[in-house]
């Protein structure tokens, strides 16, 4: 465990609470992609399968895994019930099947080991790297976003960005290297680069998030 990883995990946790807070304060899920949320639930359910047999290995990991699965399921539940009037299937249209299919293909081609758990783990890593695309696509179509939504996206993007120095740290100091997670994590962070730029140049200077 190192500082980068702790900060990354906290950032991930904070992003989920910002999202729930956004829905509660605006009484709406407008601007949030249901497709991205469903992809994240798939990511957590396929990666955290080991919660059933490694519960005693690390209380920190196990509790975080439970929180990620349950809070994302709760977010989806709220979006499909309480706040469903704000859902806009006309805008949230990214072809999600390609993402799932592509992640599935990479998982079958490059797992660490051919076991159900390892292939699903690899699938979850690749799927996570692109799960934000429906959300970013939606943002591009609407051309603007509520400030609280941009804070959510920033915290979610910062989480994987913070994992990169964590991987470097582990590589140099612990001799630990996980090529699948590292390559996918770099791709995931790169997908956010446009968003990070606009967040930095507009939102942090008190302006509204608007695409040029």
């Amino acid at each position: 465990m190192n500082l980068f990883r702790i900060l990354g995990d906290l950032s991930h946790l904070v992003s989920i609470f910002i999202l729930l807070q956004k829905m509660r304060s605006t009484r709406s899920c407008a601007g949030i992609s249901l497709r991205t949320q469903i992809l994240y639930l798939m990511v957590y359910c396929t990666r955290y399968l080991d919660i059933f047999w490694t519960f005693n290995a690390s209380l920190y990991n196990s509790s975080m895994k439970l929180v990620f699965i349950l809070s994302t399921a709760y977010t989806i539940y709220l979006m499909r019930t309480v706040y469903k009037t704000a859902l806009d299937p006309q805008i949230d249209t990214f072809a999600t099947y390609y993402l799932v299919g592509g992640a599935g293909l990479l998982a079958v081609l490059f797992p660490y080991k051919y076991t159900v758990y390892e292939v699903l783990w690899s699938f979850s890593i690749w799927l996570e790297s692109v799960a934000i695309l429906p959300q970013l696509f939606m943002l591009q179509r609407t051309g603007e976003a509520e400030t609280i939504t941009t804070h959510y996206l920033f915290a979610l993007g910062a989480y994987r960005a913070l994992y990169i120095p964590n991987w470097l740290y582990r590589w140099f100091l612990e001799g630990h290297f996980d090529p699948i997670a590292t390559v996918a994590g770099i791709i995931q962070t790169l997908l956010y680069s446009d968003f990070f730029y606009i967040y930095y140049t507009k939102v942090l200077k008190g302006k509204k998030f608007e695409l040029p």
């Binding site: 995990d9 080991d50 990991n61 990620f68 660490y112 758990y117 783990w121 630990h176 996980d178």
Partner: peptide, 10 residues
């Protein structure tokens, strides 16, 4: 590398 035992990150 022992797969399945090294996934200690979230």
């Amino acid at each position: 590398r022992e797969a399945g035992k090294t996934h200690d990150e979230l």
